[in-house]
Design a protein around this nucleic acid. Structure first.
Lengths: 136, 136
DNA sequence: TCATGGCTTTACGTTAGCGTCAAACAACTG
DNA sequence: CAGTTGTTTGACGCTAACGTAAAGCCATGA
């Protein structure tokens, strides 16, 4: 009931409602992985009977999860990270800001590491090319 | 014998020669971890009898290993990465350049992810602060 | 000489993050 | 109605990256 009464904004982009296989296909992961993420509390799809039903919110979270993984974070870390988004709805805002700052420090360290590494690799590549073709 | 005859350049910064405990202490990791890295071929310290003796080269590799870990790479990945440094001494230079490019692509994806994430967190922090203090 | 500290190897234990059946139910299709 | 497809919940398996003894070899110092 109240599929679009006066609850959520009337915007509708892609489809809402995805099956577990839909998302698995879209993101190139296994259904097993998705269930695993749910078991760890990272997502909480609704149920239609026993069947999981995912909405845009769940899909958005999945995107954040996968990005976190690309960045090398553990599911525990990612879970904490998602909590920062949820916490948006006020509450212990000071504590939130603290946690965000902590996380930001880590990420900026990582950013520095990354830039150093990229620079080094580009240097190596330059050296390699020099030996092959003096000036192309 | 030939502790500094005409083998290596005469430059000498910090001390050369570290024990496994030295490095463990310096980098805040366990000796077990260091032995594990050796068992995986990431470092290859010399031996004095049975005792491992590390030189600057090993120490430098360790630094790269730890940076790789901070970036979320597996030891396998890091191993490949170290090989790029070693390969510096010519050989299949074309293949090297390819691998370097592959790795660079990954890193740049990661860089993008990271920047997005940092921006989002800063946004969250801004919102949080707004609720607390309008203009400080 | 014996205790102490640091080093070694061997080996089993542990956690994370899924992969891979297995068994069962639901809906659709020919 | 049987078969196929998609879903569910277990439950066991597996790799990575170490942790954690256990047991032994040296060297040093009281």
């Amino acid at each position: 009931m109240t599929s679009s009464d006066a609850d959520s904004p009337a915007i509708s982009d892609g489809p809402d409602l995805y099956s577990i296989a839909d998302l698995a296909r879209e993101f190139g992961i296994s259904t097993r992985a998705i269930r695993f993420y749910e078991s760890k509390g990272l997502i909480a799809p609704e149920r239609l009977g026993a069947t999981r039903v995912f909405r845009r919110r769940d899909r958005a979270r999945l995107i954040l999860i996968l990005r976190g993984k690309r960045l090398g974070f553990s599911l525990r870390d990612i879970s904490d990270y998602l909590a920062l988004y949820d916490a948006d709805r006020g509450q212990q805002v000071n504590l939130l800001a603290e946690k965000v700052d902590e996380r930001l420090e880590l990420l900026e360290q990582q950013l520095a590491d990354l830039q150093t590494t990229i620079a080094e690799l580009q240097e190596i590549r330059k050296l390699a090319r020099t030996r092959v073709s003096p000036a192309s």
